[in-house]
Amino acid sequence: MSTISELGTKVFPTWCPGCGNFGIWAAFKSAAASQGWDNTNTQITAGIGCHGHIVNFVKLNSFEGLHGRAIPVASGIKYANNKLNVFVFTGDGDCIGEGGNHFLHACRRNPNITVLLHNNNIYGLTTGQTSPTTSHGFKSKTTPFGNFDEPLSPVSLAISSGATFVARCYSNDIKKLTELMIAANNHPGMAIIDILQPCITYNNECTASFFKENIYDLPADYDPTNKVAAFQKSLEWGAKQIPVGLIYKENRPTAEQEFSENGDVSIVTNSLKTRDISELLAKLK
């Protein structure tokens, strides 16, 4: 169990002042402190992009791997030790671009991990190129005449691929984001939070004020268990038309349950010994 200040490290974040990553960082530390996520029970993985620097700023065991590959690494960790809370920090380019195939297949496998998608609709670390979620017509360094491609919705993609907990939140709504992170971790299965975040340096469209003006909370009577309705909801985007909150939820066996009925897998042991294979050898005679 650590306090919020104990969850800090020797390094202070290098993100631009005003970056949405600060909200995500604050919400995660707040959730961790309240839930007792510490180095006896929690693991974070990250991809490459501005989001990935977070491994340096949170004092929890972390694995910063390759661009787009955080989900397979997290899945491997979870298969090996299901006792851990496993979080994936990823970005729109990392998760939907470079790692799109892993995202789809993880959704259908349903590992009991939480994916925190830092979605700023732009490539920040490479200084301002379009991402898979950049809007049509957007002018960036690589699309000086306007983005020709249509954007992908991570929420639609997650629901249609079989994810079992799909939410959206605004990065600077720290209270709500904290609650959703806790709910996502408590959900037994693949949980995704599409976190809308402003990139104050390279995205002059999806700004803090844009998000503040256009997001709306799902009504209290919204039913997140209706998959078709949730998918329709995921297609909403535009003026005053960006729903936030828990959009879809279902219960399905987790990926780890393939190897243990109650999903309680921990193959980490210090007493690994040579196995006796004489029975298999005898079959070869």
């Binding site: 693991q43 791997g65 397979p72 690494v73 899945s75 491997g76 090996a80 892993h102 297949h105 193959i267």
Partner: peptide, 22 residues
């Protein structure tokens, strides 16, 4: 069995990192 070889190596790296002989 996973979706591609990129996932295969990264997942086995994850499992090994967590302590499994992979």
């Amino acid at each position: 069995q996973v979706e591609d070889e990129i996932s295969a190596i990264n997942m086995s790296i994850g499992a090994s990192y967590a302590g499994a002989r992979s």
